[in-house]
Amino acid sequence: MIDALVLFDLVLALAIIGIAAGVLILRDAFAMIVCFVIFGLLSALAWVRLAAPDVALAEAAIGTGVTGALLLKTLAHLRGRTLSPPLRVKGGLVVNAALCALVTLAGIGVFLATPIGGAGLEGLVAQNLAASGVAHPVTAVLLNFRAFDTLMEVVVLLVAVVAVWSMERGIARAPAPVMGEVYAGFARLVLPAAVIVGAYLLWIGAIAPGGAFQGGAVLAAVGLMLLITRAYTPLPAHRGAARIVFVIGTALFAAVALFVAQGGRATFEYPAAHAKSLILIIEAVVTISIAATLAALFHGREPVAVSVRETRA
């Protein structure tokens, strides 16, 4: 007597596995990327079934949405190149397949032998939730109990944009696709709503699933649309402002962490009376930084490189 929901889980799991294999098997590069996006969305659905709505939101918005945009942009750069056949059957392939099957089977064996639902950290989190300043456990972990991780995560984003700007300096400008007028009209209608959704996700993160990263990704989508519709064109003159926006999230986060570390408190130990305000201020600024950084990762090249090239040519 299989429960209907368990049946749904089984079908979903099989679909996820099949589509993951499709990413490797499909010949066409565009189909491969679409396959990957569907894979991400189905994974997010599975994580909702596993009571992880925050992670599902982050995966759908960042792991699938922003990543999909990055992949399609890269594909536009590579267009004209024929994709090598995905898998050629040869001796090495069989050995690889056998080894990976062994690793997978061993992993499944260990997973099935491990008792699920042992004591985790949820008890500790629940005990200290009242002192964290927010009512949603995941936000409390991200912005308070393990805030140092989150600070480093924002630093990683910063490093990524620095690396991408440096690497793209030498690339010739790819012919950017121009969207039609219908698309521009669509953007005009959707952008204000997307801004509201992003801000709402940020605000609701204090009490329910949502938060800085999910809100930042939605705002980044606004940035992507502005870039695609040419409603906003990055100019070399905007470089300074862009740099400030990239850094301000990390800088404010670190500054608050150090500032609260006085009078016997450690870094990141927010005073209880101001914890919620401090967390919301950090989240708001970090959200703007994340949105700008993700949009810049999509845009790729540093605006000044364009102007140098244009004056040279």
């Binding site: 992880a52 960042i62 990055l70 985790g120 989190v125 995941v138 991200l142 393990r146 990524a160």
Partner: peptide, 22 residues
């Protein structure tokens, strides 16, 4: 659910998009 692994995975997703972009 235990919120700590959830926070770790959210961190992982953001780190992964950075690594992918590079």
């Amino acid at each position: 659910a235990d919120p700590v692994p959830h926070a770790l995975v959210i961190t992982g997703i953001v780190v992964m998009v950075s690594a992918t972009a590079v």
